[in-house]
C-alpha cells in the first residue's frame, strides 16, 4: 500500500475538518414569532367545503381557473375550477377527507372532513433558508413569507425544502415564477384582510394576530362537543360572530409547534395525519441544515485553514516541476 498511514490520517483530518463535528451543531429553536405576526386560524370542524375561499383567492390574486381537463371534455373554458392541489394557479385548496360511506361530518369513521391547504408562513421557514438569492423573505413585522421575482433564479430549492410542498413553479411558462400565498399582502396594505378569510361564510378561515389566534384555538379545543359556541367570523377584530354547535375537537393545534411553529394554524376533529399534514419535529429542517453548514463554515476558519495547508502542499510539490 503506497498511501502512507500519515497521509491517510491527513485526508481524514481534512475531511473531518470540512464536514465539521455534526453532532455538536444541532441548533434548536432559533426564531420566535414576532409580536405583530399575522396569520390564519383554519377550523376544519366548521368548514362546510364551499370553496368560497378558493374562489375569492383566485379573484383577488388574479389567478385563472384550472380547467384544462374540463375544457377538453366540454369545450367550455374558464367556468369551473378543477385543481386537485395547490398549484401555480391555486394558492389555497380545500381538500376532502373521506372514510367509508362518508355520511358524518367531522367523523374519522364513516365520515368526512375538510382541510385547507395553503402556505403555512412558518416561523422559521425552510424555503427562506434554502433560497440562494434571498428571493423569499420573511417580513420582520408581519411574518409573512414574501417572494421577490426579480431576485429569483428559479432553482426550485424552496420547493424541495418546504415540508408542506407549498411553493409552486410555473412549469408551463417560458418566463416562469415561483408562486405562493403571501397572505393577501396587497389587500392588507389597504387595510383589508386575506380574501379567503373575508369571504369564508362560516368563519372557518379566521384572520388575526397569531398570538390572539393561538389563544382562540386553545379556547376552542377545550370546548365541550355538542355545546354552542359563538364562532368569530372573518377577522378576530371584527367582533362578528356566528353561533354553531361544537364538534369533538382533537386536542391539538397543528402549527403551534410544527417545524418551529407556523402562522397558519389548523384545528380539526379528525387526526391531522389523516388530513395529509406531515408529522414534523419541533425544530425546522432549516435550523439543522444551517446548523451543520455554519458549523463547518464558522467564520470561514476551517476552509481558510484548509486552504493554507493546501497552498503549502501544492507549493512544495510544484515548485520544482513544470506542472
Amino acid at each position: 500500500m503506497n498511501l502512507e498511514r500519515r497521509d491517510f490520517l491527513k485526508v481524514l483530518s481534512a475531511g473531518a475538518l470540512t464536514a465539521g463535528n455534526v453532532t455538536s451543531v444541532f441548533a434548536g429553536i432559533r426564531k420566535t414569532l414576532s409580536a405583530d405576526a399575522v396569520g390564519i386560524l383554519y377550523d376544519g370542524t366548521i368548514c362546510i367545503g364551499c370553496k368560497a375561499c378558493e374562489a375569492a383567492c383566485k379573484q383577488y390574486n388574479d389567478m385563472p381557473p384550472e380547467s384544462a381537463n374540463l375544457e377538453k371534455a366540454t369545450g367550455v373554458d374558464g367556468i369551473w375550477d378543477e385543481s386537485y392541489d395547490l398549484s401555480e394557479k391555486t394558492l389555497n385548496k380545500i381538500k376532502l377527507y373521506e372514510h367509508g360511506d362518508a355520511s358524518t361530518h367531522n367523523s374519522e369513521e364513516n365520515g368526512f372532513a375538510f382541510v385547507k391547504k395553503a402556505c403555512m408562513h412558518c416561523v422559521d421557514p425552510d424555503c427562506v433558508s434554502a433560497c440562494p438569492v434571498t428571493a423569499l423573505v420573511k417580513n420582520d413585522a408581519t411574518g409573512i413569507v414574501e417572494y421577490d421575482k426579480d431576485a429569483c433564479i428559479g432553482c426550485r430549492y424552496c420547493m424541495v425544502a418546504c415540508p408542506y410542498n407549498v411553493p409552486k413553479f410555473e412549469y408551463a411558462q417560458a418566463i416562469p415564477e415561483i408562486v405562493k400565498c403571501e397572505l393577501c399582502n396587497h389587500r392588507q396594505a389597504e387595510g383589508g384582510i386575506p380574501a379567503c378569510c373575508e369571504f369564508c361564510p362560516t368563519g372557518a378561515s379566521l384572520f388575526g394576530k397569531v398570538t390572539d389566534l393561538l389563544e382562540e384555538a386553545r379556547k376552542r379545543i377545550k370546548l365541550v362537543a355538542g355545546s354552542t359556541y359563538e364562532y368569530p367570523m372573518r377577522s378576530l377584530d371584527e367582533g362578528d360572530v356566528s353561533p354553531k354547535t361544537v364538534a369533538p375537537y382533537i386536542n391539538y393545534i397543528y402549527g403551534e409547534k410544527e417545524g418551529g411553529g407556523t402562522q397558519y394554524l389548523l384545528l380539526s376533529a379528525i387526526p391531522f395525519t389523516k388530513l395529509g399534514l406531515p408529522e414534523l419535529s419541533a425544530t425546522s429542517s432549516a435550523s439543522k441544515s444551517e446548523g451543520i453548514q455554519h458549523g463547518i463554515y464558522k467564520g470561514m476558519i476551517a476552509p481558510i485553514a484548509l486552504l493554507g495547508g493546501l497552498l503549502y502542499g501544492a507549493y512544495q510539490t510544484t515548485k520544482n516541476s513544470e506542472g
Binding site: 421575482k149 426579480d150 431576485a151 433564479i153 415564477e177
Partner: peptide, 26 residues
C-alpha cells in the same frame, strides 16, 4: 433553472443568502 437570465444573482453580494446551501454550491 427557471429564471436563468437572473442566474448571476447568485454572485451579487446584495442578493446572496449565506444560510443557503444552494448558494454555497452554486
Amino acid at each position: 433553472i427557471g429564471r436563468y437570465w437572473q442566474m448571476y444573482n447568485v454572485f451579487l453580494p446584495w442578493h446572496i443568502n449565506v444560510n443557503s446551501i444552494m448558494f454555497e454550491v452554486a
